[in-house]
Lab assay of single mutants.
Amino acid sequence: MKGKVVSYLAAKKYGFIQGDDGESYFLHFSELLDKKDEGKLVKGSMVHFDPTPTPKGLAAKAISLPLE
């Protein structure tokens, strides 16, 4: 699924993505496929991810940034 980063707290390594389906997904650095892309996780960045339901809500897994 595609989505847009709505927040990312680099110090805490987490944030949120708004998916194309309108839902909010929890984003964690550990799910970023290329850790070098962390600096690109800023508000408004477009990402691809696997939407995954968890006991705490919806989460983004296997997060990647589109090729530039």
Score class of each variant (00 low, 15 high):
Lys35Asp: 06
Ser7Ala: 11
Lys61Cys: 10
Lys36Val: 07
Thr52Cys: 13
Leu65Ser: 05
Gly57Thr: 03
Ser7Arg: 13
Thr54Ile: 04
Gly15Lys: 02
Leu41His: 01
Leu67Pro: 13
His48Gly: 06
Phe49Thr: 00
Met1Gln: 06
Met1Phe: 06
Leu33Arg: 10
Ser45Asn: 10
Tyr25Thr: 00
Gly22Ile: 02
Gly39Ser: 14
Leu27Tyr: 09
Gly22Cys: 08
Glu68Trp: 11
Pro53Thr: 13
Pro55Tyr: 09
Ala10Val: 12
Ser30Phe: 09
Gly39Thr: 13
Gly44Tyr: 05
His28Trp: 06
Gly3His: 01
Pro66Arg: 12
Phe29Ser: 07
Glu23Ala: 11
Lys2Pro: 05
Ile17Glu: 00
Leu41Asn: 01
Thr54Ser: 08
Asp37Asn: 08
Ala11Asp: 12
Leu41Ile: 07
Lys35Gly: 07
Val47Thr: 04
Lys4Met: 12
Glu38Met: 06
Glu23Arg: 15
Gly3Met: 01
Lys12Ile: 06
Gly22Gln: 05
Lys56Thr: 08
Val6Phe: 07
Gly15Met: 02
Tyr8Pro: 00
Leu9Asn: 15
Lys4Glu: 08
Thr52His: 14
Lys40Ile: 05
Leu33Trp: 05
Glu31Met: 07
Lys12Tyr: 11
Asp37Ser: 09
Ser24Glu: 09
Ser7Gly: 07
Gly39Cys: 14
Asp20Ser: 10
Thr54Ala: 07
Leu33His: 05
Gly19Thr: 04
Asp20Gly: 05
Lys43Ser: 10
Tyr25Asn: 01
Gly19Ser: 04
Tyr8Gln: 01
Pro51Trp: 09
Ser30Asp: 10
Tyr14Ser: 05
Pro51Leu: 05
Phe26Lys: 03
Tyr25Met: 00
Gly15Ser: 01
Val47Ala: 05
Leu9Lys: 12
Val42Ala: 09
Gly19Arg: 00
Thr52Phe: 15
Gly44Lys: 03
Ile63His: 01
Gly15Glu: 02
Gly57Ser: 04
Pro66Leu: 15
Gly19Lys: 00
Tyr14Gln: 05
Ala11Met: 10
Ser45Val: 15
Tyr25Ala: 00
Val5Pro: 02
Pro66Gly: 14
Gly15Ile: 03
Pro53Val: 14
Met46His: 11
Leu27Pro: 00
Asp21Thr: 04
Gly57Phe: 04
Met46Leu: 14
Val6Met: 12
Leu65Trp: 06
Val5Arg: 01
Ser64Trp: 15
Lys4Ala: 07
Ile17Gly: 00
Phe29Tyr: 15
Asp21Ala: 04
Tyr8Met: 05
Gly44Trp: 05
Gln18Ile: 14
Leu58Val: 05
Lys40His: 09
Met46Glu: 12
Asp34Tyr: 08
Ser24Ile: 15
Leu41Trp: 01
Met1Val: 06
Thr52Pro: 02
Leu27Gly: 01
Ser30His: 08
Thr54Asp: 05
Asp50Gly: 06
Asp34Ala: 06
